[in-house]
Structure formats: C-alpha cells, structure tokens
C-alpha cells in the first residue's frame, strides 16, 4: 500500500520475564482497515494494545500511531483515539450518563448527538448506576465511550464480550461504517466468527510472538481444505488416510469427509477408482486456520 500506515510497529517488545510478554513485533495497519488480533490468553494481544496506548513502557522497539510516536506524542495520539479495554470498568456508583459526561469532558469537543445516537443504536441504559448493569449493558457503555468522539483510530479489546446477537450486529454494522469512512480499527477477539466477519486482515500471536499476518483470503489458501464425497457404496477411510497431504478422514455411511493440505491431486486420483455420486467442497473456517497455527510443528516454522 502507498498510504502511510495508521499503526506502524517496529521491533516492539515487552519482556515480563519467564517467557511472558511480547517479543519483536513488526506490524503495519493501514487507514480504513479493520485488523483482527487473534490468540489465546497470554498471547500478547492486550500487551500490544497497552503498549500502543503508552500505559506500559516497551522494553525495546517503538510504535507510531497516526504518524506519531506512542511514547513522545502520547497525549496528541489519545485525542484522536478511542479505546475499549478488555474488562471495561468505571465508577460503580455513577450512572452511565454521568460517566460518559465525565469522559466527554476529559476529551472536550464531543458531539452529544453522536453519543446519544450510539446509545440509541446499542439500546444502552444511561440512567442506571453502573453497578446495577449487566455485563452486556456495561459493555455497551464501553463501546459508546470509545466511539463517541468519532476517533480516527479505534483500539478495541474483546469488543463483543457479553453483547447479545442483535447488539453484535449493530456493532459490526458500525465497524463497516467506520472503516468506510477511512478510520482504522484494531480489535482483538477470542470469537473467531467475529474476526472472520469483520476484519480485512488478521494477525495470529502465539506466546508473545507474531505467527502470521495476512488477509483471511490468503490464509485460507494455505489452510486445510476439506472435500465431502458421497459414494454409491461405502468406502473404507483407510484408503484415503494414507494419501500424501491428507490430515483426516471421517466416514458417515456412504460419505467420506477428507481434510488435506496442499494439492488435491492425490485425493482426486484415488477417487477415480470409485463410483462417486457427489463432491461437495467444505469451506474451511477460521477456527481451522487458527488451530493450524497453534499446532507445535507449525509454530516452530
């Protein structure tokens, strides 16, 4: 891409000792992208976000957000950034409205019509004390405060945690609008279907290191493929399980589901020895891609 990255991370590290932290992360995220961060707990997703927000200091490396250094220009960055923490917390005795007013005053220049529009969109309860709200309703407040000043860059840690499917849908629609306006979103999630639905590119982190970064489309090309083959008579799975590239074969009556990596040629040639009624491609999902990068042999590479 020719445009300057909205997020540019160079050799960023945070070493907590005992192998914990983030190590030598290089990453560029471009304006208008919705970028997904995937990885299990402790992979380094939240650490990366907290480094970008200058809440913690890097052990090595640097990062730029919107062309500004995350340490030297932290205040200037924060004026243009919205953040949702993974475990959103606020003063429990305040109402949602009072909390949003406080945060809007800290920012200055928040259009209350935008805030109210978001509250309506998410059906948020603004007039009850926060300690009386359910996790999902608190999360709605977290989303409103992150979006209400229409920031150029959004960093969202587990944004759909606790949200019901309808609100998730509203949130995903909002992400599309934000992206369409050329604003950038970095989000982390454990919910693979969410990442699959909304992100343009994604990164997979494992034990503080970047395993892969690519578009979902490209990742699919190197991922496990599946074919569902219906034969006229039952066929022994063993015949296919020994073929080069085949990783799994599942039998269900006269149907075999064959998972394989790389070329489909050995499978297709073996099929020719049987009478085949139907061949259906299985659409590999993100979970398979994700798990593939978490297998020990893949991680080493």
């Amino acid at each position: 891409m020719s445009t300057a990255p909205a997020i540019e991370i160079t050799g960023l590290s945070k070493d907590y000792g005992s192998g914990r932290g983030l190590f030598n992360l290089d990453l560029q995220i471009y304006p208008g992208e919705v970028f997904g961060f995937l990885g299990p707990n402790g992979a380094g997703k939240s650490t990366t976000m907290r480094l970008l927000l200058n809440l913690i200091a890097p052990t090595a490396g640097s990062a730029k957000l919107l062309g500004l250094d995350t340490v030297a220009d932290s205040l200037a960055i924060r004026r243009r950034l919205g953040y949702l923490p993974g475990d959103f917390a606020m003063y429990p005795k305040l109402t949602g409205r009072a909390m949003l007013e406080y945060l809007a005053q800290l920012r200055g220049g928040v259009d209350l019509a935008v805030r109210d529009g978001l509250a309506e969109r998410f059906n948020a309860e603004l007039d009850r004390p926060i300690h009386e709200l359910s996790t999902g309703n608190r999360q709605k407040l977290g989303l409103i405060q992150a979006f209400m000043h229409e920031p150029e860059l959004l960093i969202l840690d587990e944004p759909i945690a606790g949200l019901d499917p309808l609100v998730q849908q509203s949130f995903h629609a909002l992400l599309k609008e934000v992206s369409g306006e050329g604003r950038t979103v970095l989000l982390s999630s454990h919910t693979l279907s969410e990442v699959e639905r909304v992100t343009h590119r994604l990164a997979i982190l494992r034990q503080g290191r970047l395993v892969v970064v690519d578009s979902l489309e490209n990742l699919r090309q190197v991922a496990v493929q599946r074919l569902e083959i219906e034969f006229t008579t039952p066929v022994a799975p063993a015949e296919f399980s020994k073929l080069p590239g085949v990783t799994a074969v599942k039998a269900d009556g006269r149907t075999l589901t064959i998972a394989f990596e790389g070329s489909a040629d050995p499978v297709i040639k073996a099929l020719a020895a049987h009478e085949v009624r139907a061949v259906r491609p299985g659409d590999e999902n993100l979970e398979e891609i994700f798990l593939r990068y978490y297998r020990p042999d893949t991680a080493a590479s």
Partner: peptide
C-alpha cells in the same frame, strides 16, 4: 487496581 485509571489515561490527560 479497579482498572478505572487505565481507561481514564487513554483520554487526553497526563
């Protein structure tokens, strides 16, 4: 410790 300060400090306040 209640994780409020981290949120506040992502706003433009030193």
């Amino acid at each position: 410790q209640d994780r409020i300060a981290a949120l506040v400090l992502t706003h433009p306040i030193a």
